[in-house]
Design a protein around this nucleic acid. Sequence first.
DNA 1: TGTTAGCACTCTATTAATTTGAGTGCTAAC
DNA 2: GTTAGCACTCAAATTAATAGAGTGCTAACA
Lengths: 357, 357
Amino acid sequence: MELDARKKKILQAIIKNYLETGEPVGSRTISKYTDLNLSSATIRNEMADLEEMGYIFQPHTSAGRIPTDAGYRLYVDDMLSEKQSAKEKEAREAEEQSESGSSEIDRRIDRIEEVLQEMAKMLANNTNYTSVISMPQANKNRLKFVQLTLVEPTKLLTTVVLEGNIVKNEMIQVDKDIDPETLLKLNILFNNELNGKTLREINFDMAANMADSAGELGALVSEIINAIAAAIGSADGIQIFTSGATNIFKYPELSDTTKASGLIGTLEEKELLTGLLADTSGDDEEENTGIQVYIGQETSVSSMEDCAVVTATYEFEKGVYGKVGIIGPKRMDYEKVVDALKNVTGNLDKQFRKPDK
Amino acid sequence: MELDARKKKILQAIIKNYLETGEPVGSRTISKYTDLNLSSATIRNEMADLEEMGYIFQPHTSAGRIPTDAGYRLYVDDMLSEKQSAKEKEAREAEEQSESGSSEIDRRIDRIEEVLQEMAKMLANNTNYTSVISMPQANKNRLKFVQLTLVEPTKLLTTVVLEGNIVKNEMIQVDKDIDPETLLKLNILFNNELNGKTLREINFDMAANMADSAGELGALVSEIINAIAAAIGSADGIQIFTSGATNIFKYPELSDTTKASGLIGTLEEKELLTGLLADTSGDDEEENTGIQVYIGQETSVSSMEDCAVVTATYEFEKGVYGKVGIIGPKRMDYEKVVDALKNVTGNLDKQFRKPDK
DNA sequence: TGTTAGCACTCTATTAATTTGAGTGCTAAC
DNA sequence: GTTAGCACTCAAATTAATAGAGTGCTAACA
């Protein structure tokens, strides 16, 4: 069967209406809602076709129609490609707004966590859905600077600064006292050897080599390397901020206790979200719009099979990306969500990249 | 009216039964449940009295009775005072178990956040309620060590170590380059002047004084002091870990959507929890058992008016306390919860205080 | 005087029966 | 190809009927 223009128009009308009301939509509604000037009977015929094609279905005989995942997919893809073509026009018209109120957050750029948490909150409030933001993935990030400090005679503080000025600390308990000269030597050693290295590069034989060449300090050196690796690692482990979890209760189709509990549970756990926010740079869709949409099963998180997830990527430092996502019911206002996400990623890009400084 | 022994026994039986079943309990049940050998009619009479006294009530005529907040209060107080007397006996019998498996967590004691988060998870899993743990309140904590490092020519990293080895970082953007000697001077200056000070002590005129005596570096010095204060402050802002929020769905009286949403919302916000976990050292009850119980309205968090909250205090460093709490329905298993809390605080005390090291 | 059996009464919860109305599919006419 | 009309279906809301748990009160009993 052919999905001609009229069918498509009807399908869109159905989905649009369902997005607003959340109720199955019947033929009579569409007959009036559209400018097609068709009777409900005609619409019914077309609907039967659309159902056969798998874009809509009835929850039960004698109910209106609801979009299937395939229906949503079609709708979303259409919208995105429209946005895409609209984008080119925008690109020309933009630039005038490019500098705006970033100074306030500028000052505390080192408090990335707070910025992201705040963003998540805002996003959730604006959209009435649940928002999710991942810390930029640092595992491709390079070590910029290491500082060893003696806090107590046997307590060594390792401060690690990564590219992008992410700072992490690790405390090491040592057996015997360390004298200042040794400390200085160690500091120089580590900064010479490790700067610019990633976690992966450090982990391999480098540790062994350095420990060897350090002679009697070998044990200490390898312990310090471990601490450094742990510090980088702890920055690596995807950190995720969520907000507005309770917004799901605004949508009856999600607020049944088992579903809600499952959803909130995965939001609390956070580990399960990493999959959602994995790095997808290189995907086709990504290349085009920077936006990805997962509908129902496509999320591969079982507790979200009744949800849709829209994600976008922001750039933290050259080549280091983080993700922003919105989780809501399948019948979410995709258009609004996409706009909101673009807004946020745009903001973050601007704040973090700061080509001027 | 007099609350004689028999009435008390009946009240306890009612509450105990209600804790288990969650259903209003009737006279016949009690007549069999207790060893009082009284007919249901007699029990009914006593129940009428207990109701008049305000310890129990009927959700509607012809339903069994449910404890009022006052009833719970009586029950909990009794239990706690029993525990208290039992404690003395324990004290004699204890000590043999005093050293147990703390080594594993010992190693990573600097990762307090992780330890506490893990504890919260465990506690929630064991009890099937929601758990809450606050970071030790550092605002009485003293500065132990400051380290200024130049990360880039105009980027100054301030690393602050507090008593208890809490480490915080703050990045400062400076106008002009700083040469190594100045840096060294600053390091010495700050460590001499500020060590052992609390946030409050630093904030006052000290900042002004130091800036003055620093001459042309005045502006820089005061900016650094700000950074240090911010670092301490960020450690001060109560940090709270929660776990098992979704456990509330296991209790029908809490899982109605509005209530659940409110509760989970406050758990997500966390700010509202600070009141619950405020420092109460010095309270009467606290002195006796280390345990506090808030029933219903007593929490003064509106979303928890159908809940009970039990909290306990643990000692992080001498004089620095944190709190552990359990949030559940009023009909929670208080005894189990109190035991679990004591267990956890005991563990934390042991881990953090480490009188041996 | 405290305890108990007995009974009428109340009120919720459950189940069943009934009604309503939205929406469909199909047929026949335009 | 479109539409009016009609019989049919089914969920949801409404009402009615029933069952059962539990009470309060009275009168008898030890």
